[in-house]
């Protein structure tokens, strides 16, 4: 009896290089930031909603995939983020309520904007607008991804690999590798590599940072059919996350994006200044504190 699997879609080089947003004249740098921001929101919202990590992981992969077939100018980070998390919660058999999800997003957006927290008006107009946007976003994700919404995740594989490498009892490696997996969701590695390679890469990286030597003759990763070059690449993507901080004024809705793009260069400069200020602020919604799971 053969084991079945639904393999993850892997992008062609062309799809990766010429994203729909790029064709819509959105700067590459901004697209990267918006992707990360969207994933940040999904991960945080999932934690607040007490969803399993599988749901957040699936949602982030769906979010990343979606913006390789649709443009950020047509779909907002907020709506697709909500839609992806809602859909992923159902896919991972832990459905959340639309109302809860909208309230959490409202809270997170206000926090990101440094606005005082104010709950949405019950049955108010804003709520209904967000609800409609969420339902439409969910359908759009399904449609644009051809219903390929079942994502293979590397968590289980990684645990098995750790077992084979006899690393499960190590003090830091399993936790670190797990954290890297969570963080790697904010990058595009899930649309470039199969889960096995990603699982190897995070172990490789975690072992490297913990300064633990793994068998190199033969190289252990070859047994899991990973390539050194791919693992290095994935590690680079992950490490880059920690080097760059997100500005706090990124656009979340389509209107905001339009404004943002109007004087992109000016905003860029002010944004950079802002980053420097924010770096001292521990309460900001940057990537590092959000990985605690």
């Amino acid at each position: 009896m053969s084991k079945l699997s639904l393999q993850n879609a892997i992008l062609t080089y062309e799809q990766l290089e010429t994203t729909p947003s790029k064709k819509d004249n959105i700067p590459e740098e901004l697209e990267d930031e918006l992707r990360r921001l969207g994933c940040d929101f999904i991960q945080s919202a999932g934690i607040v909603l007490r969803l399993p990590q599988v749901a957040m992981a699936t949602a982030q992969v769906l979010f990343q995939r979606f913006f390789y077939v649709a443009s950020l100018k047509k779909f907002s980070v907020r709506d697709i983020g909500m839609g992806a998390l809602f859909l992923a919660s159902k896919v991972s058999e832990s459905p959340c309520k639309i109302r809860d999800l909208i309230n959490v997003y409202n809270y997170l957006i206000r926090r990101y904007r440094n606005e005082p927290n104010e709950p949405l008006e019950y049955l108010g107009q804003v709520f209904y607008e967000m609800k409609d946007a969420l339902v439409i976003a969910e359908m759009q994700i399904l449609k644009k991804l051809g219903f390929n919404v079942h994502v293979q995740l590397p968590y289980g594989l990684m645990v098995n690999y750790l077992k084979v490498l006899e690393l499960t009892d190590h003090e830091t490696i399993p936790q670190k590798a797990w954290g890297y997996l969570n963080d790697s969701l904010r990058t595009n590695v899930y649309v470039c590599y199969q889960p096995a390679t990603i699982a190897c890469a995070v172990i490789w990286l975690a072992a490297r940072i913990a300064q633990v030597k793994l068998p190199t003759s033969p190289p252990w990763w070859e047994l899991f059919e990973a390539e050194l070059e791919d693992m290095e690449n994935i590690s680079r993507h992950i490490m880059r996350l920690y080097a760059i901080r997100l500005p706090s004024n990124l656009p979340l809705s389509l209107d905001e994006l339009e404004d943002y793009l109007k004087n992109y260069e000016d905003r860029r400069k002010s944004g950079i200044n802002e980053i420097n200020e924010i770096n001292d602020n521990k309460d900001d919604l940057g990537p590092a504190p959000m990985v605690t799971m």
Binding site: Q7, N8, A9, I10, L11, T12, Q15, R65, Y68, V69, L142, K143, K144, L145, G146, F147, N148, V191, Q194
Partner: peptide
């Protein structure tokens, strides 16, 4: 071969 990412 992994599937392509295409819409409905």
């Amino acid at each position: 071969l992994p599937p392509m990412l295409t819409g409905c």
